[in-house]
Nucleic acid binder design. Sequence first.
DNA 1: CACGCTATCAACACCCTGTCGAGAGTTACA
DNA 2: TGTAACTCTCGACAGGGTGTTGATAGCGTG
Lengths: 214, 214
Amino acid sequence: MTEPSADLPLGRRSRSRPHGDEREGRILATAERLLADRSLQEISIGELAAGAGISRPTFYFYFASKEDVLIALVENVVDEAEATVGRLFSGAPADSAERWRGVIQGYHDVFGRHRRLSETLIEARHVWPKLSAVWAGVQDYWVENTARAIESERAHGNAPAGLPARDIATALLQLNERVIQADLAQEPLRLASDAVVPTLLHLWHTAIYGVPPA
Amino acid sequence: MTEPSADLPLGRRSRSRPHGDEREGRILATAERLLADRSLQEISIGELAAGAGISRPTFYFYFASKEDVLIALVENVVDEAEATVGRLFSGAPADSAERWRGVIQGYHDVFGRHRRLSETLIEARHVWPKLSAVWAGVQDYWVENTARAIESERAHGNAPAGLPARDIATALLQLNERVIQADLAQEPLRLASDAVVPTLLHLWHTAIYGVPPA
DNA sequence: CACGCTATCAACACCCTGTCGAGAGTTACA
DNA sequence: TGTAACTCTCGACAGGGTGTTGATAGCGTG
């Protein structure tokens, strides 16, 4: 029994809830608290357990790994982002430049509101495959919406035809991700915080319409 | 003596070379070989040492850490990139669209030629501070050159004035990094390999000139 | 009240890192 | 040529992390 049996839902063990839900919440809260100072790699499962007032083996009763803790944390942020940005895609766009600004600003705000967690997410994505899949789903949702919006602008004659809308949308969202990441992590080479949204908007607007924003 | 004395060059111990240079080369070769299958995090120093035919403590005679091995490896790729792309900035640009295509293509080719190593570099950047500093220097060199080229296009009346050239250059290079990373790592959400250069070129061209490439 | 389920943890096996100290081999030169 | 210094090597250790096992305590329910 060294390898995990792949036919069980590995995430957490049980979904009945006598009162162990509180423990679970305490583990999550501890993780978010410790994340303020150190990366997830530097935080041990022992610390997470101690912070929640349980022993290390008990941690494994609630989560199969650190990765699962992170995923649970990330799901909240993702929900928040969809609530903030998703709205902008569904409503009728009054002014298109304003719509794109809203998308970029929203993306920037949500990540900024959970700075350390977002940083952790984007860094840890490459290390943990399950997290990677979760994040890919989120990205796909945004690319899909963006591509549809670009096509709609083209159909209305507001934007010229050109490269596939989905390709442009993919590149633009990866652009956002990287620029915002550099900002969050205060990387040595980054845009000044207040230049992030204008610069991104410039790239989005020229890429979509062929002209800079008004 | 638990903490390292910070006044020594920690990278390697000595610079006389009886024949230990060969060992050093074997460690690097082993690292590059093992990197083909697994991430650097998954490769232990014991394996690196075994691959080079030495014991684990002996590894520490040549390198202070795995990070230093990676940095040594990365320096080669960086030199190659500067040789390929740097040339394009110094020569007089015949056709400007061609020049930018050359920059993007060069960037893409060099990374593609060292796929796994580039992937490792970009993922590991966040984990290891010394590597992070090395990479920041490289990025800065490219941003500087790109910003100068944009300003030169503006001065010649080929590109309109607008946002600070350095901000645009920073965003564009981060765009490249992220899009190429997704391609190298075969992330689920990525551009098709042959769409990478055209799409990037479109974003660069519209961002700099306000119009799509011819 | 006894069975099953939730919840808990001490102890274990294992792997990884980095260091210490004792040496073997080589060179340099007195 | 003997010895001192320097290069290079590794066994053994200390310390820390992960994930599992197996024993156990309490709770609810038929």
